[in-house]
Design a protein around this nucleic acid. Structure first.
Lengths: 187, 187, 187, 187
DNA sequence: GATGAATGAGCCTTCATTCAT
DNA sequence: GATGAATGAAGGCTCATTCAT
């Protein structure tokens, strides 16, 4: 799975052949099909593993009694924070959904929506508590947050000019400024 | 080209065959190769057409003498504003770069960087003029802006609950709040 | 199609690969798939061509005003008479039905039943006219007739000790003796 | 073997994989190869078991001192009589000979010929004793008998409108009428 | 401008078989 | 007796591309 993720990141799912994968591992195609039912099943496994972990960690953030501001910051850190380890798998997750067969895609899309709706509910919480601006559209703002974080998987190079922690900090800042009322900015 | 873009959006470049394209048009493969040298050349044409128009329109925004705030808002509108017409081509542009052959990819990556750097320069302008917060990292902020806008191509459905104009307005708001100092917020 | 029939006769449908077929023709696989949608489609074509011709010729036999005895004899000659030309295709037809996909198999089974029922109707005609024995079970007798004729495709070698005409004569004789009343045998 | 026969009947030898067989049994492929040297060996076992029993039973029919008419009737009953139990194996036997490797096929073909020649000899016996018509060609008539009986394996459904006993009776009748002189028909 | 036919490479998948455990 | 893992060959099919007409 590790190897296949690396290849999918590099060339895309469709353009990566089973032969590419098994060559990278030094095994044979027959062996691949002993462990996976199909190329599609492999892609599904990748998707499921990523989103399931993400949802689990999001839930543990939501269960706490922290203010919405802190919860949102934690979610941003969750998404960006371990890009080093999760970067490749996330990359596949964000790009290759359409190559799942419809039946599987439906499952993943549902979990994807769930994740986004949890962000919406944190935003709503913050709006009601007065932490966030009243005029925000929670749904669109959730998409904006996801845009900022997820887009970084397209360009961020771990080990480049910025550490992931620093990026997470910058973006938390940017997002919180974007949604908090003018007078209540953190010092 | 229109048809091929629609198919690339739907199934991805690799998973779309020339046969798919010509079937959708009711012509034959031979005919395709009369007009395009290769599948790759078609993809390059799509990329070039999109980025060239974007750069041209960005330039005309930059040439004005407006404040940085207005310029940035104009760029956001440029990216989101005509999603109805440009949505599909943008979708291909954002997803299929990796399938260009290296030589072509280099060209596009250069223009892509140019576009981003122009946003950086607007941000810098705003920081210097005091319109934007001093502590911003212009490069990372440029990526954040692009994240917010470009990500919308992944989920936005024209004709859904929100018009593109409204989305552009919401996101301009979100972004400007994110980068302007607390005390100078627009009313 | 000729070549593929020969190969199917020799090795069976499943054991004959597309490669086998195109090798025998000196073309390439791509070429095969330009002309046939699938291996299954080729098999269907073979079935359809055989049964359609058979049904057409059977119909022209039935339309005449001849006595049932003559009609039945004509059908036996129809089945055995041109084994030289039709032998191979008939062989495939009798053996490979199960490899058609269900949808196609249904079509062929229907035509097959039609052919048999026409034989039944000739038998019934003969029974009513007193040409054939009253106690015959028309359906089972139709199957018996088909057994005698069709089985010969499994062992008959054209150019062997007997000409097809002679075989047709022998079998017409055998069958008519089998179904006519004792007293009315032909001299 | 039971399971494999059922699968061969359903899909054909070539189209049935070892995996299919072991799946149906709930064991693993390794286990199959502990019991059978190869797929071909399994097919040979099936053939051998069927023809050996048939030959043995035929021999016991032939050893009696009954008239040819009775012997022939007994052989017809032998072939059709226990179609319920023997149907599936006979089906494989009649269809899959060509998938034996040449060396094995030769053995089976020899036994097959032997069985047929025994029928020929009964026919000859009957012709000489005056039970059967003088002008019969014993070889072709033997094939006709086998056609009537063996073809029934292609369409007969135990538990359908007719019992196997009744079918055997009908076909004995048909065949004997077909070969006996007009004046000596049974009452 | 367009077509029909062909090609060779490559694709995903399945196969019969082997073998260490 | 049985299993799990592997293998190399082959299978059906699709692909981007070419080219004579």
């Amino acid at each position: 799975m590790q190897q296949s993720i690396a290849l999918f990141v590099d060339k895309g799912y469709s353009a990566t052949s089973i032969q590419d994968i098994v060559d990278a591992l030094g095994v044979t195609k027959g062996s691949f099909y002993y462990h996976y039912k199909s190329k599609d099943a492999l892609l599904m496994d990748i998707h499921q593993q990523y989103i399931d972990e993400l949802l689990a960690r999001q839930e543990s953030i939501l269960q706490g009694a922290a203010p919405a501001t802190d919860k949102l910051a934690a979610i941003v850190r969750l998404l960006i924070g371990d890009m080093e380890k999760q970067g490749p798998i996330a990359n596949v997750y964000f790009r290759e959904l359409r190559h799942l067969k419809e039946e599987n895609a439906k499952t993943i899309r549902a979990k994807r929506a769930e994740f986004r709706e949890q962000i919406e509910s944190v935003l709503l919480e913050g709006i009601e508590s007065g932490e966030f601006r009243k005029e925000l559209n929670p749904k669109m703002t959730a998409f904006a947050v996801l845009g900022v974080t997820n887009w970084s998987y397209q360009w961020f190079q771990p080990g480049g000019e910025l550490a992931t922690d620093e990026l997470a900090q910058l973006y938390t800042d940017f997002i919180l400024h974007g949604i908090m009322p003018a007078q209540s900015k953190k010092p």
